[in-house]
Design a binder for these strands. Structure first.
Lengths: 233, 233
DNA sequence: GAGGTCTAACCTGTCAGACAGGTTTAGGGG
DNA sequence: CCCCTAAACCTGTCTGACAGGTTAGACCTC
């Protein structure tokens, strides 16, 4: 009775275009045929091709731009971020569950980062931790540095899937971060958070996976507690 | 110089519709306004609303069906699966990287599953492992049971984000699984794989997280080795 | 009054054609 | 050989139309 994914001209076009990308082994940046050509080849109206393009663009599989032809896109976490946000807003996922996943993958990330980070990356991570400390009185800036810190760690893991995943959680984290920050009411608890980040950075820079994991673990214990204190289910 | 995500009438419509869902606190299954109404409210043509709907449907944020109005959708791994496949086909992600992520999260999954699984779930997981054994001579069926096994474990973890992630890797796994199976050329290596699954199932059923993690770890060691043997970068 | 049926109103899927810009390309002039 | 321009190409958006699926209410029967 259900067929949503495969029936309909648009779904057919999506499939045909995806196949085209695979078969021609197109790489990010490569151009796709124009809407007019595709609509002729697939025997459908331009409307159908356009809706197929939009669908693929929504998943960041292709990239659209006015005047230019569509191109194959680089993977990007934007779409995943929206999906996760949607899941949270519709009560299908809660914040604690996201934190469990983040803890799991970020623990692995710091292990890999400790082993694989370049010196430049180590410096960047250290610097981001320092910037966090400096922007202690500006929550918005602090949050951005915090997010950038975790993103940099993911990148240093040299596994793009981890970067993708960390990026996917960023959207919803932006919305919950202030809650956690506010619930750290004492100066001591705020300091602790900043110090923990510095500790993580130092351990990664020192190529000490065990210490890095321990610090990251502490960070999550503390974060989860902060969110629970704030009453976040 | 870049603005792809926020400019254009369609992006505006996507934003407006997303906001509508959040502000009205719509839950999965709830209906959205019709295309005609939305196009009037947003002062854009029906074309624009339709393309916005398609985009949201591609991310499985909403669900479309002919004749009926669009509804808010349940989270679904379909879109993520396509994104991952795209990443692999365009050489932005390789299989080993995916296996590293899977190992990381599946290790956590069996820990949670061991603690939280219901008796029904335990029985199901045990049964799936048994079915794998029985379909040893039918690779297609074996693969499906294998995938179902890991999906069932994720579900038993009681964290929908893990289910989502496991689902997201399923598409690409379907394409690489046969490679791994073929590279297990000896009867002994094939038996090992089946036995390992049974071990995981038994450990979860026995609520023994440590044993479950050990077995899962072994499973991934073995899988990664099989793929490396097959020459998969 | 309850239940069932049928029709009219509503809604989505697809098509065709049109036009305003943005982009690329080929040619022509210096 | 380089630069500049105009034509060709391409996408974004709008309008109007029609087929076919869905729904709700009117109506009819028991």
């Amino acid at each position: 009775m259900e067929n949503a994914g495969t029936s309909g001209l648009v779904s057919g076009a999506i499939g045909a275009i995806s196949r085209h990308i695979r078969e021609k082994e197109l790489m990010p940046g490569d151009k796709l045929p124009s809407e007019a050509i595709l609509s002729k080849e697939l025997n459908v109206s331009r409307t159908v091709v356009r809706e197929a393009f939009r669908s693929l663009a929504a998943m960041r599989i292709i990239e659209l731009a006015t005047g230019k032809r569509a191109t194959v896109a680089q993977i990007d976490h934007g779409a995943m971020s929206l999906m996760i946000e949607h899941g949270v807003h519709t009560d299908q996922i809660n914040i604690q569950q996201i934190y469990d996943v983040r803890r799991t993958i970020e623990t692995r990330i710091v292990t890999l980062a400790s082993i694989r980070r370049s010196d430049t990356e180590a410096a960047e991570i250290l610097d981001l931790a320092a910037q966090m400390r400096r922007s202690m009185d500006d929550p918005a800036a602090l949050m951005e540095h915090d997010l950038a810190f975790h993103t940099a760690l993911a990148r240093a893991s040299r596994n793009p899937v981890y970067s993708l995943l960390i990026g996917a959680f960023q959207g919803i984290t932006r919305q919950t971060w202030p809650i956690g920050w506010k619930s750290r009411s004492t100066q001591a608890s705020r300091d602790l958070m900043l110090v923990t980040h510095v500790e993580i950075a130092r351990a990664v820079a020192a190529s000490d996976p065990q210490k890095a994991v321990a610090a990251m673990s502490l960070h999550f214990d503390e974060s989860v507690r902060a969110l629970l204190t704030a009453g976040l289910s």
